[in-house]
């Protein structure tokens, strides 16, 4: 009887079975990479804002402290956003007839707030609190990167769960002395010894508590 399949069909069949493993692994890799990429997390993408506000100018060039504008970052969950009146503290005189700042002046005249586009946006089922992080020695730049060098603000971290948990598993690798939290260029060569000591000094909670689901999903 004439065979239905050619002899080589055996090899093809075997190859495609083994090959499938690699194809599936490859697909999984692509899925994970895309999931972590800035395409999904939107990290690294500067937002269009009603006024082209530059942290680089205000923080690096003019030496304004984060808290001048984000006044509640030490005391509440929300970092706080500057009111139009806060901008006008200086811009009543500086660049006071620049067209770039017209939306700010218009907002001041009418009382209609400026509508900044959010850069960071955690999903509603995640609880985050600035004050605890800032008071336990996690610096702004650890999570937000060198904001002081950004002409337009963008997100640096992925803000995915694995990113939060990585630090919650081992905060000693990231914490710094409280006094340095607002120092954007802070770095140290002695994180190994210093970190562990700070975790003790600041009585930072144990890994078990910090990684339990109800800490962030409450």
């Amino acid at each position: 009887m004439h065979p239905t399949f050619h002899r080589s069909a055996n090899t093809v069949a075997r190859l495609s079975i083994y090959g499938a493993v690699f194809v599936l692994a490859g697909l999984a890799w692509v899925a994970v990479t895309v999931g972590r990429s800035s395409y999904v997390t939107e990290a690294g993408i500067a937002r269009r804002q009603p006024v082209p506000f530059s942290h680089k100018h205000h923080v690096s060039d003019d030496g304004i402290d984060c808290r001048y504008c984000h006044a509640t970052v030490e005391t509440s969950a929300f970092a706080g956003m500057p009111s139009t009146a806060t901008c006008m503290n200086c811009h009543s005189q500086i660049w006071s007839d620049s067209p770039v700042l017209e939306p700010v002046r218009a907002s001041y005249r009418t009382g209609e707030p400026l509508r900044w586009t959010r850069v960071h946006n955690l999903p509603g089922f995640v609880y985050f609190d600035h004050s605890i992080h800032v008071n336990k020695g996690v610096g702004c730049s650890t999570c937000h990167g060198r904001v002081d060098q950004m002409p337009l603000t963008y997100q640096v971290a992925s803000l995915q769960m694995e990113w939060c948990v990585e630090c919650h598993q081992n905060p000693a690798a990231y914490v710094r002395p409280r006094e340095q939290v607002f120092d954007m260029s802070w770095r140290t060569d002695r994180q190994d010894e210093q970190g562990a000591q700070l975790v003790k000094d600041y009585k930072i909670k144990d890994t078990h508590t910090l990684t339990s689901c109800s800490t962030c999903h409450r």
Partner: peptide, 13 residues
Amino acid sequence: KMASQPHERPLQA
């Protein structure tokens, strides 16, 4: 839509 729940965040429009 668990990610956008029916509550307002601070200063949200």
